[in-house]
């Protein structure tokens, strides 16, 4: 049985649809787990993709803490006799999944880009050494916990609706007191889930000039990213940072504007299917990994690009 921990807001997140897709591909009985406030409201949606849906809205699940969630998921995995547990490779998922693995004394595979069954376990691929190396790993164990990199799996297909069960869990408070949360909510598509990303770097010169990045992103329906240089300067929120210490993205097209292409930045976007660079310096390292690019001043190129994209759209 495959247990799938699903992330959701008012709907299942794309990461959850991908996990369910991966579970369907692996084959076998699928149990979707929905934890926290609002879980009940997405149960019917989840039931389209799984054989069972387990819903728990225990008050101790709010606000989220890794310790309490890990106990909930591990307890459900034990009760359901899961042999595989899948979680999202989001930042939250990657602090939760190892805890679940420890509780179950399972083998843990992290941030898989590709998953397949082998006798008694799983084989995955994932990136290592600042995403410069692709590793193939195998785990044979009674239980394998695996986090799956966002944007790498096909979305689940609907099937005959599964059963929905409300479950009770014996949880304890984690002892963590959440003082506040600053949500960097954007109306644009989430960076790690976007199939197109436009990123601005120090070359933009000022926070105001990010209007050029946002302008193009809005026309083509892309997520907005930033380099650490732009984030450190206070021009953009940290949530937009792409790279070693920011997010890892793998969109269909990654458009880097005024970005030099430092190793630490490349480790977060180097696996993008197409890389497009706009930079005035023909020697900029970003051009070495670019499929397409314009060598020129972004102040003149970007307005022209936005116009050309608009023309195409309309």
């Amino acid at each position: 049985m495959i247990l799938v921990q699903c992330e959701f807001d008012t709907k299942l997140k794309k990461s959850a649809l991908e996990l369910l897709g991966a579970a369907q591909k692996l084959g076998g009985d699928i149990t979707a787990v929905l934890l926290g406030t609002g879980a009940g409201a997405v149960a019917t949606e989840a039931a389209q993709y799984a054989n069972q849906v387990l819903v728990c809205e225990d008050a101790l699940l709010e606000p989220y803490t890794a310790k309490t969630f890990a106990k909930a998921i591990a307890d459900l995995a034990e009760q359901a006799e899961a042999t595989i547990v899948l979680l999202a490779g989001s930042r939250g998922g990657r602090e939760l999944a190892p805890r679940v693995a420890v509780r179950l004394d399972a083998a843990y595979l992290e941030d898989a880009t590709n998953i397949e069954r082998i006798e008694g376990g799983l084989r995955i691929q994932h990136y290592a050494f600042l995403a410069r190396v692709t590793e193939t790993l195998e785990a044979t164990a009674p239980i394998v916990v695996c986090s799956v990199k966002p944007n790498t799996q096909a979305i689940a297909e609907t099937r005959a609706a599964g059963e929905i069960y409300e479950v009770e869990l014996e949880l304890t408070a984690s002892g963590v007191n959440i003082l506040g949360r600053i949500q960097e909510k954007t109306t644009r598509v989430a960076l790690t889930e976007a199939s197109l990303v436009v990123t601005g770097g120090r070359g933009l010169g000022s926070p105001e000039n990010f209007a050029l990045i946002e302008g193009l992103a809005d026309v083509i329906g892309a997520g907005v990213g930033a380099t650490r240089a732009a984030v450190d300067a206070g021009w953009r929120p940290y949530g937009e940072q792409v790279g070693q210490t920011g997010k890892t993205v793998q969109p269909n097209a990654y458009i880097a504007v005024g970005v030099s292409g430092a190793v630490q930045h490349l480790s977060g976007m180097g696996k993008s299917k197409n890389i497009i660079a706009i930079n005035k310096d023909p020697e900029a390292p970003i051009f070495k990994v670019a499929d397409y690019g314009i060598i020129g001043d972004l102040h003149t190129i970007m307005p022209a690009l936005i116009d050309a994209a608009k023309k195409l759209r309309d």
Partner: peptide
């Protein structure tokens, strides 16, 4: 990588 780089001297044509 394809490395198709366009000279941006004429921004409109390049875009």
């Amino acid at each position: 990588r394809l490395n198709k780089l366009i000279d941006g001297k004429d921004p409109i044509a390049a875009a």
